[in-house]
Structure formats: C-alpha cells, structure tokens
Amino acid sequence: MSEVLAPVSITAKALEEIKGIMATKSIPEGYGLRIGVKGGSGCGGMGYMLGFDKPKDGDITYEVEGVNVHVEKRQTMYLLGLEVDFYEGSDARGFTFVNPSQER
C-alpha cells in the first residue's frame, strides 16, 4: 500500500476500542473501518459515521496501527483534520468526533 496522508486521526483510546470490536464482533476478513459524513437537515448540519466495510472504488485507504481505514475520496474535504476519540464516563460511552475546522 502506498503512503497516504491520513485525513482523519484516531486516538489511542478509540483505536483500542475499534480493535476490540473487530476482535469480538466477527468483522469479516478484508474489512476495515469506514469513516464518513452524513448530511444533516436544518440547523443540525453534517454528522459523522463509523462502520466496518470493504474498500470501494473511489476510496482513500490508509493504515493506523494495523487497522485499515477507508474514506470516500469525495468526502475528504469534510473530514480533513477530524479526530476520532472514544469517551468512557459514568454518564455515557461512545465514539466522539472533534473537527477543529468546524468549531466556531
């Protein structure tokens, strides 16, 4: 795989959780983490999504500590600088997304 600049960074805590999911949820061989955007409506704006998927034509694929990450090339401009983290607290737990270019 050629060296690709990663448009999205993944924290160590999020990576640990992703690897745990891949190990325990029977993610098929050849699948990787897909990071994308989903359009919002009204004031909600755009949201982010995570899932496991095979690489597709038009994807940018890169590796983060053994995990292949797939991003649709046409969505890259919306994802540049995005950081995926994992929050685990007494009130909630789940993946969080921080995009400095979208903060006001």
Rank of each mutant, 00 (worst) to 15 (best):
residue 74 R to A: 12
residue 85 D to Q: 13
residue 78 Y to F: 15
residue 64 V to Q: 03
residue 79 L to N: 03
residue 90 S to K: 10
residue 90 S to F: 07
residue 58 G to N: 05
residue 60 I to C: 10
residue 82 L to A: 11
residue 87 Y to E: 13
residue 89 G to T: 05
residue 69 V to Q: 00
residue 73 K to C: 08
residue 65 E to A: 09
residue 83 E to D: 13
residue 68 N to A: 12
residue 61 T to N: 10
residue 83 E to W: 05
residue 55 P to L: 11
residue 82 L to G: 07
residue 57 D to Q: 12
residue 71 V to G: 01
residue 89 G to Q: 05
residue 72 E to T: 03
residue 70 H to E: 01
residue 57 D to S: 11
residue 75 Q to K: 09
residue 71 V to P: 00
residue 69 V to E: 02
residue 72 E to V: 01
residue 76 T to M: 07
residue 77 M to E: 11
residue 85 D to P: 12
residue 70 H to Q: 02
residue 64 V to G: 00
residue 74 R to M: 08
residue 64 V to M: 01
residue 80 L to W: 01
residue 77 M to K: 15
residue 58 G to R: 01
residue 91 D to Q: 03
residue 75 Q to E: 13
residue 89 G to E: 09
residue 84 V to H: 13
residue 68 N to S: 13
residue 61 T to M: 09
residue 91 D to M: 07
residue 88 E to N: 15
residue 57 D to I: 06
residue 56 K to A: 13
residue 71 V to F: 02
residue 66 G to I: 10
residue 58 G to Y: 08
residue 86 F to N: 10
residue 82 L to Q: 09
residue 85 D to M: 12
residue 68 N to R: 11
residue 61 T to W: 02
residue 86 F to R: 07
residue 88 E to V: 09
residue 68 N to C: 08
residue 72 E to C: 00
residue 66 G to V: 11
residue 63 E to T: 15
residue 82 L to F: 06
residue 56 K to V: 11
residue 92 A to D: 01
residue 91 D to H: 00
residue 74 R to H: 09
residue 74 R to D: 12
residue 68 N to L: 08
residue 78 Y to D: 08
residue 84 V to N: 11
residue 92 A to K: 05
residue 92 A to V: 01
residue 86 F to H: 14
residue 69 V to I: 14
residue 74 R to T: 13
